[in-house]
């Protein structure tokens, strides 16, 4: 934020926001977030701490054999980092987006300014990434304190969670802007988020699954994220090729952006 301030003050006519109007939308979201961030910060440390203790230490005590060659907690942590990123990303791209169309209607206010649909989308995505990155950083710190990170590559989880977040948030923007009631959002959690969290390799290797379910896991963006994050924190090679994973996730972002852009346009430019 200090960066924006300085730029704006020195070049009043063409500030950073002037060149990248999406930043103004991000800024609006940050101003709104100022009211609730304390509660957010608390839960973003508490959640990983509780899951780490509950699943890793509690359940891990019963999993005596190493999983994929490492202690269960170390296996679990990168999966939780990725799946928490997924949940934060989807949380921030469902109710807030629906609300900005249906309840406070702020998108319509934004659309009547010089902002283009892409700027509104970009700013909203920027805020999702901000939320995911801050909560992942908290998770990473807790994980480091538990001694579950085995490689400096663990830092790569930050750009990775950003990619996972974008891969799921952008198509969910399209969904949230196409439904008129929040009961549809609950469906998304029931039929996409929970199954993905359970079966995409977070809690156990997908190889334990029957073939059909395994292919569903491969199709989900989360599995690719989990595999990359796990490789990063353990300092090993992932199960799939790195470029393959990255391209697959990038494809979700690209197709999702196209869907979200047309869905937003349908609502805002009629």
């Amino acid at each position: 934020m200090a960066l924006l301030e300085a730029t704006a003050a020195t070049r009043p006519q063409a500030g950073l926001v002037g060149r990248f109007p999406a930043l103004a939308v991000l800024e609006y979201n940050l101003v709104a977030y100022r009211r609730t961030w304390r509660a957010g910060v608390f839960s973003s440390f508490l959640l990983p701490l509780l899951t780490m203790v509950g699943f890793g230490v509690g359940v891990g005590a019963y999993v005596e054999a190493p999983v994929a060659g490492v202690p269960y907690l170390d296996f679990l942590v990168p999966g939780l980092i990725a799946s928490t990123a997924l949940q934060v990303a989807i949380g921030e791209s469902t109710w807030p987006v629906l609300g900005n169309f249906e309840w406070i209607k702020i998108y319509f206010a934004q659309a009547s300014t010089p902002l283009r649909v892409a700027d509104i989308l970009g700013g909203q995505l920027g805020f999702v990434l901000f939320r995911v990155l801050t909560s992942s950083l908290a998770f990473l710190l807790v994980a480091a304190a538990f001694g579950t990170l085995h490689s400096p590559w663990a830092l790569a989880t930050l750009p990775l969670v950003a990619l996972i977040a974008a891969a799921v948030a952008v198509p969910v923007f399209a969904y949230s802007s196409s439904v008129r009631s929040d009961s549809y959002l609950a469906l998304l959690f029931r039929f996409a988020v929970i199954p993905m969290t359970l079966f995409a390799g977070v809690f156990f290797p997908v190889e334990s699954l029957p073939m059909v379910l395994r292919w569903l896991a491969y199709a989900s963006p989360l599995w690719h994220g989990v595999d990359l994050c796990r490789a990063a924190t353990l300092g090993v090679a992932p199960a799939w090729s790195v470029p393959g994973h990255l391209l697959y996730l990038a494809a979700w972002v690209a197709v999702g952006w196209w869907l979200a852009h047309s869905a937003f346009r349908r609502r805002l430019v009629v």
Partner: peptide, 13 residues
């Protein structure tokens, strides 16, 4: 102020 930023208006202004 947040709305003004959509027009690229500097924060102080």
């Amino acid at each position: 102020t947040t709305y003004a930023r959509y027009f690229g208006i500097p924060r102080r202004v």
